[in-house]
């Protein structure tokens, strides 16, 4: 007879399983670990593998426009800005899905991911990053970290699953 049927047929066994459930609950009530990362105070270090906000190295760019062509969401477009001879990519974060195809296809590694994703803009226009100085080529930093959040590193742990240790 399966455990489930024993629970249904045998009231004493059912009481035992009630007790087991309550005991498990109580064990966790007095156990230490918590899963929550209290975000603005602690910021998870996403590591350099993370596909976050995209950054342009304009000096490397050869204006091949492959990034704009491969973009599945049409977020990346080529812009010719006044006073410049060549076209450079700009990105629209209203559309970007962070698939990273543009980074992968760039033949000169002019685009790269940054391990930052918690960015908010005040208006829709602010989400369009043109190849201007301080815009698409900017060095990203998590706003939570800028305002004093402590960076935590994610570590795998047999006891607690994920551990978040401050660096």
């Amino acid at each position: 007879m399966s455990i489930a049927d024993r629970i249904r047929r045998n009231p004493l066994y059912s009481l035992k399983m009630h007790a087991a459930a309550i005991a498990t609950g109580l064990r966790y009530l007095f156990a230490k670990p918590r899963m929550t990362v209290r975000y603005p105070e602690y910021v998870i270090d996403l590591g350099r593998n993370y596909r976050g906000m995209i950054r342009l190295h304009k000096d490397k760019c050869i204006s091949c426009s492959l990034c704009a062509q491969v973009c599945p969401a049409s977020a990346m477009k080529m812009y010719k800005l006044p006073g410049e001879k060549k076209m450079y990519p700009g990105i629209n974060y209203q559309r970007c899905i962070f698939c990273g195809f543009c980074v992968d296809i760039c033949p000169v590694n002019a685009l790269e991911h940054t391990p930052v994703h918690d960015i908010a803009e005040e208006d829709m226009e602010g989400m369009i990053y043109l190849p201007l100085p301080g815009r698409f080529d900017r060095e990203w930093k998590s706003p939570a970290e800028e305002e004093g959040g402590r960076k935590v590193k994610v570590e795998f742990d047999e006891e607690e699953g994920l551990k978040h240790e401050p660096e």
Binding site: Y28, L29, R34, R38
Partner: peptide
């Protein structure tokens, strides 16, 4: 409930 569920 939060403590049992490993939350705050």
């Amino acid at each position: 409930a939060a403590k049992v569920q490993l939350r705050y």
